[in-house]
Every structure is written in C-alpha cells, then in structure tokens.
C-alpha cells in the first residue's frame, strides 16, 4: 500500500525539531532511519500529518566513551555501531545483538535511537538497553532530562517520551572485566523480528554471578525483566530459573506462535544465555 498524504519538513536543528513537534493537533512524527516508521505508514497503520526528518541535524550521532559510560548518539546507524570498536569493547551486549537486527540494507539506514524510541516489543535494542541498565537522554520544550531504561518502556509502542520530546542519545555503563553478557533469539528467518528473544547481563564476582538482568523481548507489550528467574539464576540453579519463568512471563498468542510455545522457547533461550553468562568474555 501507499502512505496517506503527509507534509515533510527537514529539521535544521534539535530546537527546530522540537518546535515543529509542537503543532496543535499533535499529528507530527519524527523520521530517523524510517525502517519501522515507513513500513507502518505504507501499511496505513499510522497516518501522521507531518513527518519531521531528523537526518541532517548535527550533533545527534557519534559514539564516545564518557565517564565510564558509552554514549551513542540517537542518529547512529546500526551499521556504524556494528563496525565500531568502541561498541565491541564497551557495550558487548549491543555488539552481540546487532547482527540479528534486520538485514544489511535495513542496518544501513536504521538508527539506534529510532529503534529505542519506536519501542517495538519484539525489537532487540530496547531489551539490550534494559538488560544493561542503560539511560536515555531526552530533549524537550522544557529542556533536557535523562530517564533510566527501567522507567522508559511504558506500554505497547509507548515510552517516557512526550509528544514534543526527541530522544538524543543512549548511555550504557561501560563493560568491565567482570561484565558478562548473553544474547539469543528465535526468529523464523534471520533478521526478522524475534518470536522470543533474551538479552542478559551480569557481573562475575569470583564465585558466581551477581546483578543478573534478564530482559526478554517478544513476550509482552514491552521488553520485560524476568526478576524471579534472575534471583534463581543468582543462586546458581538453572532449573529453578527456567521454572520461575512461568511466574515472570505470560506471553499472549500472536501471528507467529502461541503463548505456550513462546513460554517454552523462553526457557530454552534461558539455558543458552546462562551458558554464555558463565563464560568469561574473550
């Protein structure tokens, strides 16, 4: 299908984008990589009156290590992060997840900020950000603020971003020698949205794992922490952790699989990811 008519404006700056978002009918959308938004427009799942193109706004891309955290500008494209030594070294979970996102042509356009802001419940990066206890920088009409990943994802395609807010960067605590990460997903075709996926991080304290964060995607309206399974895994009991998923997750049926299948697959993924968490990073 073709999108419903809309107007197009190229934002000249961050402030200009915020100003354009302030139209009284609230029917403006930001366009970054467009790899999710354009598909929804083509299918007429969404019909904004105005698209505000952020491409060309300076200062929104770039990857830098600042105060023991890796800051990734919102307009950074997947392909740039995929080939970034800084991401590989300091954000190993994102490095593991990136090859699973879409296909080569999608990763050439898609942006990290766009993926987080769009908040598709089956997308990889929102779950990674949650698993790494990342932060999101937001600029809006009243100034700038930072929101923790735990507080950012509110509901289906719903985030802490207000109608006039622009996501400007994400920040991830830089990995240390003790950081462990794991990532696995089931998709029917490489690069498709996952039926179920799991992004995880933990800290090795010599004896076992602490600070375990298991973030599932494709099993609810938002990426979800499996906190009972985290506690069981911290005790070193993988069988108990898999059993605890029954309390943590209650996925509904969707076009790809039944909720029962997703629940089963969540356990399979947990066993795989637990093995990755137990291994020192190379």
């Amino acid at each position: 299908m073709k999108p419903a008519p809309f107007a197009y404006a190229k934002a000249k700056s961050l402030d200009h984008a915020i100003e354009l978002l302030g139209r009284p009918d609230g029917e403006a959308r930001l366009l970054a990589g467009g790899q999710s938004l354009m598909a929804t427009l083509n299918m007429r799942l969404s019909a904004p009156k105005l698209l505000i193109d952020l491409n060309g706004v300076s200062g929104l891309d770039g990857i830098a290590l600042k105060n023991s955290a890796l800051e990734i500008g919102a307009l950074t494209r997947h392909v740039q992060a995929e080939h970034s030594d800084l991401v590989a070294k300091h954000a190993p979970l994102i490095y593991l997840a990136l090859p699973h996102i879409g296909h080569a042509a999608i990763r050439n356009r898609g942006t990290l900020g766009g993926s987080i802001a769009f908040a598709d419940p089956a997308a990889e990066l929102p779950a990674c950000l949650l698993a790494m206890a990342g932060e999101i920088d937001i600029a809006g009409p009243t100034g700038k603020r930072t929101v923790q990943a735990d507080d950012f994802f509110k509901g289906l395609f719903e985030t802490a971003l207000g109608p006039q807010d622009v996501l400007t960067a994400i920040r991830i605590p830089a990995a240390t020698a003790q950081t462990r990460v794991g990532f696995a997903e089931f998709a029917r075709r490489h690069g498709d949205y996952a039926m179920v996926g799991l992004a995880a991080s933990a800290r090795a304290d010599g004896k076992g794992l602490t600070d375990i964060r298991l973030a599932y995607f494709g099993v609810g309206a938002t990426p979800l922490r499996a906190k009972k399974a985290e506690a069981a895994l911290a005790g070193g009991d993988i069988d108990a952790a898999v059993a605890a998923l029954a309390q943590d997750l209650d996925p509904s049926d969707d076009v790809q699989s039944t909720g029962a299948t997703k629940k089963h697959l969540a356990g399979v993924l947990l066993r795989r990811v637990a093995k990755q968490l137990a291994e020192p990073r190379s």
Binding site: Y8, L31, G34, Q35, M38, A39, N42, L51, V79, A104, A105, I106, N108, R109
Partner: peptide
C-alpha cells in the same frame, strides 16, 4: 554508496 530499501525511504 550503500544498499537501502527503496520502499522505506522517501
């Protein structure tokens, strides 16, 4: 210089 989806770009 890079491949993109012609349907996902204006």
């Amino acid at each position: 210089g890079v491949v993109v989806r012609g349907c996902l770009m204006l």
